[in-house]
Amino acid sequence: MKNYGEKYGHFEMNQISGQWRRWLAPIIILIVALSIPAMGSALWLKVFTSVAIYTITALGISLLYRRLGQVSLAHVALMGCGGWVTLRLSHAFHLPFEFQLFAGGVFTAIVGMVLAYPALRMRGLYLALVTLMAAGGFSILIGIIQFPNGGDGFAGYAITAITHMERPYLAQSDEAFFVYCIMIAVLAYALVYAHEHAKPGRAWALIRRSEASAMAAGINVTFYKVWGFALSGFLAGIAGGLLAGSLQFLDARSFPVGESVMIFALTVVGGAWHWFGAIIAALLFRLMPALLNDWGVSGDAAFIFFGAALMHALATAPKGIAGQIAGLASRLMKSGDRHD
């Protein structure tokens, strides 16, 4: 089992020799991220808050894709599920934000498990279509029930101006909330890392290689597939709750089907096989349109770039931009070692 884990289960950064090198890049990225509020730009702080949130979503998508070979085109809709529960609890009970966030994540994990049911029988295109239909269903449903805005009843929605939800006690300002999102993203990475380096990771690796082999090895394929979807859904739910906290409300128009497709495509472009691929995907998803908008170019122009990037990734960089960066870094380090 351990060999499978080493070959398919560990992040590519394991290729870099030395324990210190293993943690160097994450620490640098974390330091850079935490220094963003010091830039003093409210616009880019908002944009990078979205980047941090969608990194968590992309992390869940890449987990499914990398470990189980499953394509989910419903993750932005899953974010909506988590966001709905977080908002509803906030307006109804005014509980601590962390509790609401966790509840939103758990609810979405359950939704993810329900989504996993067809995944037990389908793969590839057919599963992708099922998840796409689920995203479409969510879009219609949320258009009817709407996101809670401080109203009464089960839906908690009223046709009136929005009552903004409360943010975490420790993160009232935009700067503090950004740091809060970064910390949650770090915890999300830790959760995925812990799974991948434990029994579930080894089981997923074997399932991806061959379900028959996995069953022959005594792995409960059904359980681990469902568990993978639940974990991925949990992460999307957490991200949805954070998005609700960032805007202090949610709007049904933030969760169109196209967004779910787009973030999956960008996760592939960013590189689902590398730990920082999710960060690249989120940067492409939220930073790129914001840059274009700030430069006076229509944000829609980003779609042209994304299409070209996806074709490039599928044709020449199957491990995405992250794979190319990791390959380049690896070559540079080897070259440096030779010179030493």
Partner: peptide, 18 residues
């Protein structure tokens, strides 16, 4: 341009005001 998108509206609102 908020692009009819709440996230973008928050971004450009903060940009203009702050």
């Amino acid at each position: 341009d908020d692009q009819w998108n709440p996230e973008v509206a928050a971004q450009v609102g903060n940009k203009l005001v702050k």
